[in-house]
Amino acid sequence: MNRIIALARITFLNGLRRNAVWGLCLFALVLEICGMFFVDFFGRDLGRVISDFQFSIMWAAGMIFILFYAVQAIAWDEGHRSIDSILARPISRTEYVLGTMAGLSLLLLCFEVLLGGLAAAELLWARSLVGEAYFPVFSGLHFCVAWGGLQLILLAHLTVAMLISAVIRGAFPVMLITLAYSLICSGLPVVRASMSQAHGGNASDQGMVTVLQGMGMLFPDFGRLDLKDAVLSHEGIEALIGMQAWLPFSMIVLYMVLILFLACLIYQRRDIL
C-alpha cells in the first residue's frame, strides 16, 4: 500500500504542476461563470438550463483531462524511460498501474470538486435571484448524487484508458481508442432502442438484439448515471432511472474493478522494451 500511495503522490504532484492542467481548470471555471449570463435569457427553465450547462462543462472538462492528459501517463513513462526509474524500486507492475490510476483519479476529483462547488454555488445564487416561482426545487443531496454519477462515468473512462495503455504503446492510439469507446458507449443505447422499436419482437432480429445486449457488457450505458435532472426534480432518483439508485453505481464500480484487474494482468505480462 505504501508503494501505491507513494506512486499516486508523485503522479498527483506532477500533474498538479502541469500548466496545461491548470489552464484547463481555469478555462472550465471561466465557462461555468459564463452560466450566470443565462439568468437574463431564460425564465421558467432557468434552473434546468444552468444545471445542464454546468454538468456539461464538468463532463467535457473531465473528458478533455482524460483524453489529452491521462492517456499520456503510462505512454510518457514508457516513451521517456522514466518507467525504468520507477520500476527500479520494489514496485510490481500491478502497483504501478494502481498507483498511476489513483494519482490521476485524485487529480481529476480535485479538479471536479472545484467545478462542482462553483456549479452548486451558481445554482443557489440563481435561485436566490429569481425566486422560487421560476426555480422551485434545488436538492443539495441530489446534486451530490448527480455529481457522484458524473464522476463515476469519468472514472470508468479513465479506467478504460488505463487498460488500453496497458495493452498498446503510445499516447495517440490510446487516445483514439478511448474516444472510440466513449462514442460507442453513448451510441449503443440509441441503436438498441431503435432496433427494438423498428422490429418489435421479430425473431429474425433476435440475434442482433442479443449481440447488442452482449455489447452492453463491454460498453455500458452511462446514461443511467447521468442524473442531472434529479437536481431540480421533485421525484426521487429511483423514479428517474427506473431502478434502485445504488444498482447502476455498484454495477459501474464492479465494471471498473474488472477493467483494472484486466489492465494489471496484461501489464504484468508485457515486456517493457
Binding site: R17, H80, A88
Partner: peptide, 16 residues
Amino acid sequence: RQQIGYLPETSTFPPN
C-alpha cells in the same frame, strides 16, 4: 529490488 540500486542509462523522472 529492495536490495538493488539501479541507475538507468537515461535518467528521466516525472519532470515537475
